[in-house]
């Protein structure tokens, strides 16, 4: 069997030399897959992505233990621009559009992730085929786009970068339900048509489990549950605490056992 495209083993991350955020996290992304990483706020999902993409030191975070292997080679401690050029590209939370650059210039900036250079015109055509709205706004400044358009632009930059592994941090954040559907449809298309493997961090567990083949659930800096997405969708705890369906009539705070379980999930 081939080794996974990305393998994170026993990762420990500390911020400001004092706060431990990841406490032995392990996960893998097989070639061609969409893998979801779920969990409540503060569980360490974003930290995981930043550790993988090399951005951690910019926020005074440090990998103190564990390994990150991308295509079998260790990338822990590499500089972010090198990691991007090696084909591992992160779409950061909050989209991080260059506000004073036009849509086209935002996309051009992403060509720096291409080692061998790239035909900008062709890259733009591909992005505009996925997101016709961006073509209309190509000369506008990134800062003036709507939230949905900015998310399209953020994913558009990833298309220009043409990575083999894409890290997506909360692509649905702050978007209308209709737009969320649209964005997820495109994420699936990119995975299928561009042959890009994806590690997807999401609050919207229902959508994420809908497109992922495998999922990890994080809590307090560790993975507490993982498995095929189809199985997690049926898991009672996951249903109750992430998918919002009430797990039967007995769900009540008077039920101490349930309360403990709930506390464990949401703490």
């Amino acid at each position: 069997m081939n080794p996974p495209l990305l393998h994170v083993n026993n990762l420990e991350v500390v911020y400001h030399h004092t706060v431990q955020v990841l406490k032995g996290l392990s996960l893998s992304v097989p070639e061609g897959a969409i893998v979801a990483l779920l969990g409540s706020n503060g569980a360490g999902k974003t930290t995981t992505l930043k550790a993988i993409s090399g951005l951690l030191p910019l926020e005074d975070g440090e990998i103190v233990d564990g390994q990150i292997a991308f295509r079998g080679a260790s990338i822990a401690g590499n500089l972010p621009h090198r990691i991007a050029q090696d084909g591992l590209f992160q779409v950061m939370e909050g989209r991080r559009i260059f506000e004073h650059l036009t849509v086209e210039e935002n996309l051009e900036a992403a060509t720096y992730a291409r080692k061998g250079g790239v035909d900008l015109g062709e890259a733009l055509r591909k992005v505009f085929a996925y997101f016709p709205r961006l073509r209309e706004r190509r000369k506008q400044l990134g800062g003036y786009l709507s939230g949905g358009e900015q998310q399209m632009l953020a994913i558009g930059r990833a298309l220009v970068a043409g990575p083999s592994l894409l890290l997506l941090d909360e692509p649905s954040l702050g978007l209308s339900p209709l737009l969320v559907q649209e964005i997820f449809r495109i994420i699936e298309a990119i995975n299928r048509d561009e042959k890009v493997s994806i590690l997807l961090v999401e609050q919207n567990a229902r959508m994420a489990l809908g497109i992922a083949s495998h999922a990890y659930i994080m809590e307090n800096g560790k993975v507490v549950l993982d498995g095929p997405a189809a199985r997690l969708r049926e898991d009672r705890d996951v249903q109750e605490f992430y998918l919002g369906s009430r797990g039967g009539a007995q769900a009540s705070y008077r039920n101490v056992k349930h309360y403990r379980r709930r506390k464990r999930w949401l703490s």
Binding site: L58, L79, H81, A84, F98, E99, E105, A109, T111, A161
Partner: peptide
């Protein structure tokens, strides 16, 4: 110029530029 784009991108958001493959 392309370098100009990279310089303005870095001015806008250093971390995003770094992650974009730009050697800041």
């Amino acid at each position: 110029t392309r370098t100009g784009v990279a310089m303005r991108a870095t001015a806008d958001d250093q971390m995003a530029a770094f992650g974009m493959g730009i050697d800041i």
